[in-house]
Simulated assay, not measured.
Amino acid sequence: MTTRWSTNITPAERAARILIGGLGAVAGIVLLAGATSTLAVVLELLLVVAGLDLVVTGALGHCPLYAKLGHVPASLKGSAS
Rank of each mutant, 00 (worst) to 15 (best):
R4Q: 15
A12F: 02
A50R: 02
L19K: 14
R4I: 11
L23H: 00
L54G: 14
A27K: 00
S37V: 11
G58C: 06
V49G: 06
G28H: 01
V26L: 15
G58H: 11
H71M: 14
G78M: 13
V49A: 15
R17D: 05
A40V: 03
L54W: 11
V48K: 10
V42E: 09
L65N: 01
L52Y: 01
R17A: 09
S81G: 13
K68L: 15
G22D: 03
L43Y: 02
Y66W: 08
T36R: 14
V56M: 02
V72H: 05
T10G: 12
G78Y: 07
L69I: 07
P64C: 05
L60W: 09
S6Q: 12
A25G: 08
N8L: 01
Y66V: 00
A74E: 14
V30H: 11
A27N: 06
L45K: 03
S79T: 14
G34S: 09
D53W: 10
L60Y: 07
V30Q: 07
I29M: 15
N8S: 02
T3I: 15
G24P: 01
E13F: 01
G22M: 03
W5D: 12
H62A: 08
K77G: 00
A59Y: 07
L39M: 14
Y66P: 02
P11I: 06
C63A: 04
L52C: 10
V41M: 11
K68F: 12
M1K: 03
T36A: 15
G21H: 01
G51M: 12
L46T: 11
T2V: 10
A50G: 09
V56Y: 11
A16V: 13
A25Y: 08
T38I: 05
T10W: 07
W5L: 10
S37E: 09
V48Y: 05
G61F: 02
S79C: 06
V49L: 14
M1W: 12
H62E: 03
G28E: 02
L32T: 10
L60M: 15
W5G: 05
A33Y: 08
T3H: 14
G78R: 08
A74Y: 01
V48C: 07
L32G: 15
G21Y: 01
I9F: 01
I20C: 12
S81Q: 13
A33T: 09
P64D: 09
E44S: 12
A12M: 05
V48N: 09
L65I: 13
G61D: 01
A12D: 14
E44Y: 05
S81M: 13
P64H: 09
L54N: 10
L76I: 08
L47W: 07
P64V: 06
T36L: 05
V49D: 07
G58K: 01
A80R: 15
A40L: 10
V30R: 11
A59V: 14
A59H: 03
A15W: 08
T3E: 13
E13L: 12
E44K: 08
L76V: 11
I9Q: 03
L65F: 08
W5E: 04
A27R: 00
A35S: 15
P11C: 04
L19S: 11
Y66T: 04
L54D: 03
